[in-house]
Design a binder for these strands. Structure first.
Length: 932
DNA sequence: CTAGAGCGCTCG
DNA sequence: GTACGAGCGCTCTAGC
């Protein structure tokens, strides 16, 4: 078929495919000889998905285009072109020719030309196809190709699964495709080492091009530019800019040795394809494609154990098979497992228990896995599952190794410093086993690995990770346990049903570990994982198990007092409303306020119900007595239900203490999250609420000591955004909010009023949150224009802030993540979204490095703390983001404060040299209210 | 009866 | 339509 009108050409950027495949997969090797083939495997998977995805589509011609050789005409123009490219990884080099073979095996045209980049060939073909009247889709996300978009040519980003049209190009470059090279010539490209105009980025470049029409006009009329620096750059660097344009301009006249007609879509040749896939030993892919094509899959020899690297991930995933797992019912069957673990040096471990509360749950069984697909389950305390038999249900089921005997066999392995124990959320298993006298160490945690690499991209639970990275949905627990009232605990599950479920968890964990472990350093987060995530596990486990003493009597008395006051308020509210209704129902309250009483300001939410938040009621309080009563009632209701009542239910009957659980991966920024109960939101701001903290007490002869970082986020902002005035103020020990107010409103410090300071404080916080006029206006209850005026003035006085915000958002857009000073990466998946989401994402991106760096700092302090206070009669109990709470013997308070303060104030050292000091305030008392 | 969404409030 | 990051108790409704 001759290429012409109605034809549709797909051009696949092969080199981009290869690099993506290489970085997405672990270093897989061919079983028979250890040849690296990870990238080839990923490449073939992408090609197969491409072929399947286009089945029945209108594509008539297709080609995969590759780079060839490293020297191109661009190097003749500029010898530094792509000079700072990193060398190709050693294990990728031998895979390059194999990807050509793969393309040919799929019977897709495979094109390259010595001395030309793939981009030039793509450009030439696209132009030819367009001139012939056809349509073109370029499958790539390379921004250098965006200059080709338009007039029937579009791009498709296979990664994000979205096409890029003219509007997409304008979004990226601020100009249409025809002016993309002009913008690139100005902005340069650090990856390809294109110099561009120093100090001009994409945004400024787009602005200039849009104003002057084209690069040539801009350079000719450079004298007219107002900004002196910019004018000088454009005049002085004219040659460099013109050279840059030649470097980024794609060559649409590459002398091709083939025509469009040669690219016609061809049916795959099953025999040839199968032969190639079998040669690569891709078992799963061979099977899948053979089924698709309806041909027989060729046999692939099994692996020869002596050549396969020990423990190396295999190229093709072994299917999950619940039948294949071993159930260990006697000690003689356990011994060989223990021997194999000793030989191997690592093992994936998972515990099954009677509940989710590690301080109460009892051990039911243990799973182990050292090779994918080969896992075992050791049932220990399963009961006879006959629910009708009231006596039998408490008896241990037959065929289980006695608990003590099994633990005695496992303990030496689990505590052996030369054997790595791998878990998914291993803090849970660590705590359970600790209660049975086993101190698990050393450890690795796949959940934490995922968090370090993919924080912000998705959750890190086992089901999510397994589906996403292993393509396997683990057996759900629901059918085994049931739900609601009729739910049973795991010890009541039949051992035969428990085995595939439990062993699979260990299997999944092991496979995730094999996948993640080598990826950590490629993702450049090994240090983050090893210094900020993993070491926290034993530290938090210890804190959680120790718990904090809570005085039930104090809570109980307060609860009764609250109940009485609430009853009184409720009667008054009903009286004022003229009818009885549920004060706790915003919907009912809304109808009373806005319909019955016709008060102003009634807004309805998405469910069509009135919304009655506190600030609205606050406004209404000037018009009527009822809203104030409701506000008072709500405060009491909150205190009673969430704190005085619910907290009591969390007091552990054995310890008399409350044991929270910290989630290391709970917050995207690196902060911890506290659950069951949340001890990070115990009231403190209101006088009545603060009294809840009187119930958090020290044991007799001890006191509670609280140490908290003073203004840590603002200090970090001063450092990151390099604000001289802020840094100076901190170094002088000034009241930072008063200083801000003085600077902004031209009020001398000795004439400062509380109100002016309050406004400055709100602005300081606003900056950390990614300030907006709307948000500040709402917070300060002032007109939006006035709030905007404040912000403008702030940016004027502290110009570094604006630059920090712009730079951070720019970085997020380019890389898809932002970073803390310690290298933690927080992914910003929505940063390129449109509409209101864009605003959210930008503010989150601005806030994340600040909040995240503060979180890293206190994590570092916590990791060092146990050693620092080991000799003292003291325990670290709680973390509340910028505060650590300790319980310490009365006579050791001063030593504890000295030691802990040293650790906290020096927590950034030596990894990061901050331009500001970290300052820690300390307090002490018989209870948390006094200590804070 | 149970699960989940929405609201509102607590903290740093 | 908006400040950043979290968790939890209550009400209400949809669906078993």
């Amino acid at each position: 078929m001759t290429f012409g009108k109605g034809c549709h050409l797909h051009l696949i950027d092969g080199s981009a495919f290869i690099f993506r495949a290489y970085h997405a997969l672990p270093p897989l090797t061919r079983k028979s000889d250890g040849l690296p083939i990870g990238a080839v495997s990923g490449f073939c998977n992408m090609l197969q998905r491409y072929v399947e995805g286009n089945h029945g589509g209108d594509v008539t011609h297709v080609a995969v285009i590759f780079d060839k050789g490293s020297h191109t005409f661009r190097n003749d123009l500029y010898d530094q072109y792509k000079a700072n490219r990193e060398a190709m990884p050693e294990d990728l080099r031998p895979q390059i020719p194999l990807t050509r073979q793969a393309t040919e095996a799929f019977n897709i045209a495979c094109k390259e030309m010595e001395g030309y980049e793939a981009d030039d060939i793509i450009a030439t073909l696209a132009v030819q196809a367009r001139e012939a009247g056809g349509r073109v889709t370029i499958i790539s996300s390379d921004k250098d190709l965006m200059q080709l978009v338009g007039n029937g040519v579009e791009m498709f980003d296979a990664m994000k699964n979205r096409s890029i049209d003219r509007d997409g190009v304008i979004e990226k470059f601020g100009v249409g495709p025809e002016r993309v090279v002009d913008v690139q010539a100005l902005a340069g490209d650090s990856v390809d080492n294109v110099p561009g105009a120093p100090g001009i980025g994409i945004k400024t470049a787009a602005l200039l091009i849009n104003e002057y029409g084209s690069l040539e006009d801009l350079l000719d009329r450079a004298e007219e530019i107002k900004q002196p620096k910019r004018r000088q750059t454009l005049i002085e660097k004219r040659d460099q800019i013109e050279l840059s344009k030649k470097l980024v301009q794609l060559d649409c006249e590459t002398p091709l040795e083939f025509t469009l007609d040669d690219l016609e879509v061809r049916e795959p040749d099953p025999e040839r394809l199968m032969e190639f896939l079998a040669k690569m030993e891709f078992r799963t892919l061979t099977k899948r494609i053979s089924e698709k094509l309806g041909v027989e899959a060729p046999a692939i020899p099994e692996k020869t154990p002596d050549t396969a690297e020990e423990g190396a991930p295999t190229a093709e995933a072994l299917p999950f098979d619940g039948e294949a797992y071993e159930c260990i019912r006697e000690i003689d069957a356990l011994t060989p497992w223990i021997d194999r673990i000793r030989e191997r040096g690592y093992v994936a471990v998972d515990t099954e228990t009677t509940g989710l509360n590690e301080m109460i749950a009892e051990l039911v069984g243990v799973s182990l896995c050292i090779d994918p697909g080969k896992a075992c389950y050791i049932p220990l305390t399963h009961k006879d599952g006959d629910a009708d038999d009231l006596f039998g249900s408490d008896a241990l089921a037959e065929g289980q190794i006695p608990l003590e005997e099994a633990l005695a066999a496992l303990k030496p392995v689990l505590e052996d410093p030369s054997i790595l124990k791998i878990g998914q959320n291993i803090k849970y298993d660590f705590k359970i086993l600790k209660r049975y006298g086993i101190a698990v160490s050393p450890i690795d945690d796949t959940m934490l690995m995922s968090y370090a690499m993919h924080g912000g991209e998705h959750g890190h639970g086992m089901d999510t990770l397994s589906e996403r990275y292993l393509g396997h949905t683990p057996i759900p627990i629901k059918p085994l346990l049931g739900s609601g009232k009729s739910a049973i605990t795991f010890d009541k599950v039949k051992i035969d049903d428990a085995t595939p479920y439990a062993a699979e968890d260990a299997d999944v964990t092991l496979r995730l570990w094999q996948l993640f472990k080598p990826q950590l350093h490629r993702a450049k987060v090994t240090t983050v994982y090893e210094t900020l995530e993993r070491p926290l596990v034993p530290v938090l486990a210890q804190m959680e198990m120790h718990g904090v003493k809570v005085d039930r009597e104090v809570l109980s008395r307060m609860s009764n007092a609250f109940a009485q006051k609430m009853a009184g308020l409720e009667a008054e509210i009903h009286e004022l409303a003229g009818e009885s209704f549920n004060v706790g129902s915003p919907a009912q309250l809304g109808e009373i306020l806005f319909d019955k009483m016709s008060l102003p300001g009634g807004k309805k939410g998405k469910t069509g119900k009135y919304s009655t938040p506190a600030d609205v009621l606050e406004d209404l309080a000037t018009e009527h007595d009822l809203p104030r009563r409701v506000l008072d009632w709500r405060q009491l209701s909150k205190l009673k239900s969430t704190y005085t009542d619910a907290l009591q239910t969390h007091i552990n009957p054995d310890t008399g203490r409350v044991h929270t659980s910290y989630s290391i991966t709970g917050a995207n920024t690196g902060r911890l999250a506290s659950t069951d109960p949340n001890l990070q939101n115990i009231p403190v701001r209101s006088e009545e609420g603060r009294r809840i903290r009187e119930a958090f007490v020290a044991e007799p002869g001890n006191v509670l000591v609280s140490l908290d970082y003073s203004q840590i986020e603002l200090r970090i902002l001063a450092h990151i955004a390099q604000i001289p005035a802020l840094k100076q103020a901190f170094s002088d020990g000034l009241d930072i909010h008063a200083m801000t107010a003085s600077e902004m409103f031209d009020v001398p410090l000795d004439e400062m009023t509380p109100d002016i300071r309050r406004q400055a404080k709100a602005i300081n916080f606003g900056v950390i949150y990614g300030i907006s006029g709307f948000g500040l206006a709402r917070n300060l209850r002032i007109p939006r224009a006035e709030a905007q005026g404040f912000i403008d003035r702030y940016f004027e006085r502290f110009p570094g802030i604006r630059a920090y915000m712009d730079d951070t958002v720019g970085f997020a857009k380019e890389h898809g993540y932002v970073q803390t000073l310690f290298g933690r990466r927080i992914h910003t998946t929505e940063i390129n979204a449109k509409g209101p989401t864009a605003g959210f994402a930008k503010r989150a991106a601005i806030n994340a490095p600040i909040q995240g760096t503060a979180a890293d700092v206190i994590r570092r302090a916590m990791v060092r703390m146990p050693t620092a206070i080991a000799e003292l009669p003291a325990r670290m109990l709680l973390q509340v983001h910028d505060e650590l709470l300790f319980e310490v013997a009365e006579d050791a308070v001063d030593s504890l404060i000295d030691a802990a303060r040293d650790v906290m104030e020096g927590a950034a050292d030596p990894a990061v040299k901050l331009d500001v000091n970290l300052v820690v305030d300390a307090g002490q008392g018989a209870n948390w209210a006094e200590a804070h």
